[in-house]
Design a protein around this nucleic acid. Structure first.
Lengths: 118, 118
DNA sequence: GCCATAGTTCAATAATATTGAACTATAGAA
DNA sequence: TTCTATAGTTCAATATTATTGAACTATGGC
C-alpha cells in the first residue's frame, strides 16, 4: 500500500525553516531548478541537471527538508515523485520572501562572476 | 595591545550566510533588538533585554556569527563592544532582503499570536 | 599595581548532517 | 503472478557543526 505523501499546511510553515533550507547551496539549486520548468520535475532529473555530486540518500534528505519546511510539494506519478515549488501558497503566507531571497542570490552571483581579462 | 575588530567587506557577504544566521531564533532576536535602538547596544545589554537563557560564551558565538556574515558591526567603546546592524550597507548589497525577512517573521508571529477567548 | 566588567578562546560534549546498504513502491515484461 | 528495473526512503554509522564551562584577554577606575 502507498504511504500518503504529506506536506505541512501553510499555516505551520515557518520563516526559520525556510531560511535554513535555502541557506544550503544544494537545496537552493534544487529550488531554482524546479522553478525553471512548468509542471514539476522528479528528483533524479533535478539531480542530473544540477550534476549533484552526492548519493541519492543525501539528495533524498535534501528533498525531505525542502518538503517539510513547506517549500516544495511532491506528487507521485507512476514510479516518479514529481516535485514543484509551492510558489503561490508561499506568496500568500510570506509575500515577497522567496522572490527577495532569489533576487539577492542572483545579485550575489552577478557580483561574483566577473568578465575575464582578455 | 588591542586586536582590531574586523568585519567582512560587503562584497564578500553572502546570502547563504545571512539566511543561515537569521534562521536561528536567538540571532534573529538579537538583530531585531539591535534595530530598536539608535547608536547600537552592547552584548550584555542585548542579552539582558532578550533574557537569553545561555552562557555568555554561547552568546558571544552568536555575535561572532552575526559579525562574520556581515549583519552586524561591533565597535569598542571603553569596556563595551557596541553592536549595530549594518543596515544601509546591507541595503546596497542586497536591497530589500533584510526587510523582507523581518516582515515575514512579523507576519508569522502575527498569525501565531491569536487573541485569547474570553 | 589591583579589581571589576565585557567579551573571547578553547577543548569537551551535544546535536545535525552525510552516506552506504538495505529497504519500499510502482510499472512493465515474461 | 513472478521477475526485473527504476525511483525514492529509511536506518545506523560516521562526519561535521553547535553549545558550553573554564580559562583567558581587554579596558577602565581605584
Amino acid at each position: 500500500m502507498s504511504r500518503v505523501l504529506t506536506h505541512p499546511h501553510m499555516r505551520d510553515v515557518t520563516v526559520a525553516a525556510i531560511l535554513h533550507a535555502l541557506s544550503d547551496p544544494v537545496r537552493l539549486g534544487i529550488v531554482k531548478e524546479l522553478l525553471k520548468v512548468r509542471g514539476g520535475m522528479n528528483c533524479t532529473e533535478t539531480a542530473h541537471r544540477l550534476k549533484l555530486p552526492m548519493p541519492k540518500s543525501t539528495c533524498s534528505q535534501h528533498y525531505r527538508i525542502l518538503r517539510e519546511c513547506g517549500l516544495i510539494a511532491s506528487e507521485r506519478r507512476g514510479v516518479d515523485l514529481i516535485c514543484s515549488v509551492r510558489t503561490s501558497e508561499l506568496q500568500v503566507r510570506f509575500p515577497g520572501l522567496l522572490a527577495s531571497i532569489l533576487a539577492s542570490y542572483r545579485k550575489e552571483r552577478a557580483s561574483r562572476v566577473k568578465p575575464r581579462t582578455p
